[in-house]
Design a protein around this nucleic acid. Structure first.
Length: 759
DNA sequence: CTAGGGTTAG
């Protein structure tokens, strides 16, 4: 027997394990319980595959309690509650009496269902056996209520260190910081585990300084203590500190294990430091540490964040049966990050089990890829799922989606949902509300949310300023900007972009110049705003001069401003200049061709119009589809030019025909320059008459209450003709019509538009 | 052998 334990201790890899196994089979020793128990124990240590281990278990003819217990330990380590409970069933069938090691294992590894054994044990009268009450206390410490854990603790007749340690982690789990600290002080004797529990507990409570104090004071440190501190840094976003402590650990001569690697790799992931992660993989190979599924998931994540989808997927596939919720979530996030919504959705729908993070990942993924409507549909589906509770992250996503879509009804419904479900929003959540109301053109509500916040960050200010900017309220935007400075919130580059945009949309040239001059190190986007400002106030030559002197290469947005302004002010020379640059920078963007051809059309240069349209066709440039939509009864109704697919299409076209007659009397003439060249005059007029903006308004006129504001969103810039038409319609129907196009609001009322743009 | 450390969404 002495011989045996010295054999098993020496075994460090799968090959040696297989050799030993084969030898035992050869000598027909593998039916005996002693060897089966030993081999299963080895399998647990070496992470042998489940099927292999199961075969060993089944080769034992009459498994005794030790064989069962070791197999339970193996399954428990794998983390599959199903295997644990079915093995327990087998054990009962085989009439093997569970000993005091078995129940704690069962309670621990059965997850939420574990507590069922509590009643069972009470019935058997075994609830106070060695380790069992500790397991029950630990269970309550994990799943709550924490008070029950305290009850068990108080009723214990003898308390050993492990019991104190259990109750302290229970306190940390439930945010009972002061209780944890006082219990730690009361402990008659402490060991390294007690100290480590304080380190990880403080880190969990986001008090890294306290965690570090415990770490520095502890009389001895194990690998777990180091891991607790390094992970603490990593989980609180302190990648630098984590990596620094990891280096200290190396220099103190300790060998890192898988858990260390997980924390360090996730820190690398935050910093995008692929090189360090690769060196860790090499270190693991050298030290014969085989990456477990935590390590692989962390690697998956960093590969994905560095854009290496191939390696990420390799990790995912490699995980195979060890893949769990977390790995699937990480893989879905990887796909959404590169814009592959199809693959992400495929994984998402194939998940057998989803948690809040799965839903949040998918919702945020849709949002980032411009599929806000899909994001909202997902949310609607999510709240029908039992056991899934939306949290703040979910709500930030959904609220932002409402903002992008301008879906105010839905947004208001979400706000009601928040108060009904008692979901508390923190700073980010309130920022998303500011965003949502701003994007829906409801600046009073946006401002109200802003004012009611106790703490605001730079994003709160930026969002509100951007809201006022889009709304054309330049003065209000500047007021918020100065409030921000008074309250000592440091503006960032986005702040300046928003303020300059506000000036630009309100024609505040002098103010804009002043702000621009105050920027310490203006970047290309700040120059872009300034060029746009000059363009919008009609100072095109000054805009051109700024483009010439700016210290970096202008991007497409800058030439785009100039091109549009050239159309407004019929400056063919500058228009041609801007367009030629744009055709180089973004040859596939149809908007630029359309704008230039409209400039020519206005000047009556039809041969040039045809030339541009021809080059568009030759280059295979397709006109971007313009969409307009309105929200009604919580549904979005979306239209394109000439749309006849809507169920109320006939009525809508009737409304438009009546409007057309009345508008003609008011002196409106359709601006047909934006219609295709090669169709008949009459057809052109028909096209202009059924622009998506007009269809949306016609639909709104049909379904909405008289006197209410009509709110339309257009994905591109509103066209000049519709801009004119909306003015007249607002007067004829005595309705306020609000159109949000790709960058600003147009509020049409009594025949005028709030925007200060020239057309 | 019961107590301490782990990966994912924004």
């Amino acid at each position: 027997m002495v011989q045996l334990s010295s054999i098993t201790r020496k075994i460090t890899n799968h090959d040696q394990l297989k050799q030993l196994h084969a030898q035992l089979v050869k000598n027909s020793l593998h039916h005996g319980n002693y060897w089966a128990a030993q081999l299963i124990c080895l399998c647990k240590r070496l992470h042998a595959p489940p099927l292999y281990t199961r075969r060993i278990f089944e080769s034992a003819h009459f498994p005794n309690v030790v064989v069962f217990t070791n197999m339970l330990k193996y399954y428990s380590k794998l983390g599959n509650p199903m295997d644990v409970s079915s093995l327990f069933g087998l054990m009962q069938k085989a009439n093997v009496k569970p000993d005091s090691f078995v129940y704690p294992l069962l309670i621990k590894s059965s997850g939420k269902a574990g507590i069922a054994f509590h009643a069972h044990l009470l019935k058997l009268g075994r609830s106070h056996e060695k380790f069992i009450d500790n397991a029950i206390m630990s269970w309550y410490g994990k799943y709550g209520p924490v008070e029950s854990a305290w009850n068990v603790f108080d009723q214990m007749s003898v308390k050993i260190v492990a019991d104190w340690n259990s109750i302290i982690s229970a306190c940390w789990n439930w945010g009972k910081t002061s209780k944890a600290v006082s219990l730690f002080g009361l402990m008659p004797e402490k060991n390294v585990i007690s100290w480590t529990a304080m380190v990880s507990g403080s880190a969990k409570a986001k008090d890294l300084e306290a965690a570090r104090r415990y770490f520095d004071q502890m009389p001895e440190r194990s690998i777990v203590s180091w891991n607790a501190m390094i992970s603490g840094y990593a989980q609180n976003g302190q990648a630098e500190e984590a990596i620094q402590l990891y280096n200290e650990m190396l220099s103190s001569g300790l060998r890192p294990d898988e858990t260390t690697c997980v924390a360090v790799i996730s820190s690398c992931s935050m910093r995008g430091d692929r090189a360090l992660a690769d060196s860790l993989v090499m270190m693991m190979n050298k030290n014969r540490i085989s990456p477990n599924h935590f390590v692989k998931t962390a690697l998956l994540d960093i590969y994905a964040k560095c854009g290496d989808l191939k390696m990420a997927r390799e990790m995912f596939d490699d995980l195979g049966v060890y893949g769990n919720l977390v790995t699937w979530n990480a893989m879905i996030a990887a796909y959404t990050r590169v814009g592959d919504l199809t693959s992400a959705m495929e994984l998402f729908q194939n998940m057998l089990e989803k948690d809040v993070i799965s839903w949040n990942t998918m919702i945020a993924g849709c949002l980032q890829n411009g599929e806000s409507a899909v994001a909202i549909d997902l949310f609607k589906e999510m709240i029908t799922c039992k056991d899934i509770k939306p949290d703040e992250v979910t709500m930030v996503g959904v609220i932002s989606a409402c903002g992008h879509l301008g879906a105010l009804e839905m947004g208001n419904w979400v706000v009601k949902f928040l108060s009904e479900k008692q979901i508390k929003l923190k700073i980010g959540g309130h920022n998303s509300l500011i965003f949502m109301y701003s994007k829906c053109g409801s600046m009073t509500h946006a401002y109200k949310v802003f004012q009611e916040m106790d703490i605001r960050d730079v994003i709160s200010y930026n969002t509100l300023i951007a809201g006022f900017a889009a709304y054309g309220s330049g003065v209000e935007a500047l007021e918020v900007f100065s409030k921000m400075q008074k309250e000592d919130i440091e503006p960032d580059r986005i702040t300046y972009i928003s303020v300059l945009t506000a000036c630009s949309h309100s024609g505040l040239l002098e103010e804009g110049k002043q702000v621009f001059d105050s920027i310490v190190d203006p970047d290309i986007d700040h120059y872009a705003c300034m060029v746009d400002l000059y363009c919008r106030v009609g100072r095109l030559d000054e805009a051109k001069r700024l483009i010439d002197v700016m210290p970096m290469d202008p991007h497409a947005g800058i030439y785009g401003s100039l091109l549009n302004a050239s159309r407004v002010h019929t400056r063919i020379d500058l228009g041609e200049f801007a367009a030629s640059k744009l055709f180089e920078l973004e040859p596939e963007n149809s908007g630029n061709y359309v704008l230039l051809s409209n400039i020519y059309a206005r000047a009556g240069r039809w041969e040039d119009v045809d030339r541009i349209r021809g080059s568009m066709k030759k280059g295979g440039v397709k006109k971007t589809t313009g969409w307009s939509w309105v929200e009604h009864d919580g549904e979005l109704h979306r239209f394109i030019v000439g749309d006849q697919s809507h169920e109320r299409s006939v009525e809508m076209h009737r409304v438009l025909a009546e409007l057309k007659k009345k508008m003609k009397v008011s002196g409106y003439i359709a601006d047909k320059d934006c219609a295709l060249r090669d169709v008949e005059e009459e057809e052109k007029e028909e096209m202009v008459g059924t622009h998506s903006e007009k269809l949306a308004v016609a639909f709104a006129l049909l379904v909405s209450e008289p006197g209410t504001t009509i709110r339309v969103v257009k994905n591109l810039r509103i066209c000049r003709d519709c801009h004119d038409a909306m003015k007249i319609i607002s007067q004829l129907e005595s309705r306020e019509i609000m159109v949000r196009d790709n960058n600003r609001f147009h509020s049409f009322k009594d025949g005028v538009c709030s925007c200060k743009d020239h057309w």
